[in-house]
């Protein structure tokens, strides 16, 4: 327990356990898959599935590119305002993966993807869907990887408010929502503001949408506001997701 908790020395052993659990996770997903299968129309099912798959993949790629372009525009205008101060977004390459298991219980919130070490997926890689950041990879096996969702209470991500550039830390609550910490009371944060990754810490690339502010509370005696936000990523419905690899890290790995 101590080796795992303090030293993270049990990574490979955990991978072995997760590999053994794969058939159990698949068996557990079978009733749901069967239910989906029997409730769907069987007419030219294969054709529709194939076409749907193609379209979804295409949309996912296009939306991911759009996200980057929109954020780059905002980034450029902000940079221009700073008179040439540098802060260029890293180039990212993407890998498409399928969600094979979704777990949302009071102890943890994670999804399992069908890409693992054999596909050069590594820990700390960021996972997004067409809306924004979903989480980061925390464990990998040869063929699968586990993504800790941003709504997990153990997950924190450095962010900034897109409109104002105010930085903060986004923490999961375990209930499909997140809280934005370290926003001073004199900040001009508003309900509906988009929160994006700030890029600090070198784990999450800058400029990807993460959440939208939906509640701001002023707690008496506290120097900071209590800001509650809803993640923009659709982690409960997502089927196809993108694993990001920064070009810099890719070159280092190669």
């Amino acid at each position: 327990m101590a080796a795992d908790h303090y030293g993270k020395l049990m990574g490979s052993f955990r991978s072995v356990l997760l590999t053994t659990l794969n058939p159990i996770e698949q068996a557990a997903s079978l009733p749901k898959q069967f239910y989906v299968l029997v409730t769907t129309d069987f007419t030219s099912m294969d054709e529709l599935k194939l076409e749907n798959q193609k379209l979804k993949t295409e949309i996912l790629l296009l939306k991911a590119k759009m996200q980057q372009y929109t954020n780059m525009e905002l980034e450029i205008s902000r940079l221009e305002g700073l008179l040439g101060t540098t802060g260029k977004m890293d180039g990212q390459s993407v890998q498409i993966a399928t969600v094979t298991f979704f777990s949302s219980n009071p102890l943890s919130q994670f999804i399992t993807l069908n890409k693992g070490q054999l596909d050069k997926v590594a820990e700390k890689q960021v996972v997004i869907d067409e809306q924004g950041i979903m989480g980061q990879i925390v464990q990998t096996t040869l063929t699968t990887s586990r993504v800790l969702l941003i709504t997990d209470p153990d997950h924190q991500i450095p962010v900034r408010i897109q409109r104002t550039g105010q930085r903060g830390i986004l923490t999961g609550t375990g209930h499909d929502s997140v809280t934005l910490s370290f926003i001073p009371k004199n900040s001009s944060v508003q309900v509906g503001d988009l929160i994006e990754s700030s890029g600090l810490g070198d784990v999450f690339p800058a400029g990807y949408p993460v959440a939208k502010v939906n509640q701001i509370n002023e707690v008496e005696g506290e120097p900071y506001l209590e800001v509650i936000a809803t993640p923009v990523a659709n982690s409960r419905q997502a089927h196809k997701v993108l694993i990001l690899t920064s070009e810099k890290k890719k070159i280092q790995n190669d």
Binding site: R14, L17, L21, I24, R146, L148
Partner: peptide
């Protein structure tokens, strides 16, 4: 217990205990 720890993402050995 180890399998449950891997399943729930808790510290290895906690469920075993």
């Amino acid at each position: 217990g180890l399998f449950l720890d891997a399943l729930y993402g808790t510290t290895l050995g906690a469920h075993s205990l």
